[in-house]
């Protein structure tokens, strides 16, 4: 694993995490896309050195052949993340149509329950001793 490609993986991942922690939907999606790229790149990096095309019967035993499996895995992962992220974009668009806003909303019911809990606490502390 070369140092440089490992560094790229790390940088992409950390930028992705930073964007994921934002509250704006478009940044979250960009962050996820970067993290997906970084994971795919990691798959390529762990595959070892580049080499000849690994075609059955096209090379002798002494040739250094690239490991085909990580490439296949990365290709699959790329297609999957491409599909899911485009679906996420479609949903984000829908969310924008519905709310005219790009922020991730809070769970209404959850907030309500939290309020109930707080009110309960206040009553408990202010009870006559």
């Amino acid at each position: 694993m070369s140092f440089f490609s490992a560094l790229i993986v790390a940088v992409l991942f950390s930028v992705g995490v930073y964007l994921l922690l934002q509250r704006t939907l478009s940044r979250i999606i960009l962050g996820l896309a970067l993290m997906a790229h970084s994971a795919n790149l990691l798959l390529m990096v762990v595959g070892g050195r580049a080499g000849k095309a690994p075609i059955l019967g096209a090379f002798g035993p002494e040739d250094s052949v690239a490991d085909p499996l990580p490439q296949a895995l990365a290709l699959t992962a790329i297609v999957i993340s491409f599909g899911v992220i485009s679906f996420l974009l479609a949903i984000a668009y829908r969310s924008w149509v519905l709310t005219q806003d790009d922020e991730v909303e809070d769970d209404v019911e959850d907030a309500r329950i939290a309020q109930l809990g707080e009110a309960e606490m206040r009553r408990w502390w202010s009870r006559p001793k």
Binding site: A90, Y93, R94, V97, L98, T99, Q100
Partner: peptide, 14 residues
């Protein structure tokens, strides 16, 4: 997603 000139079949009222 590319429905033209506001005829998006998915268009819903917020």
């Amino acid at each position: 997603l590319g429905g033209a000139d506001g005829t998006d079949p998915d268009e819903v009222q917020p």
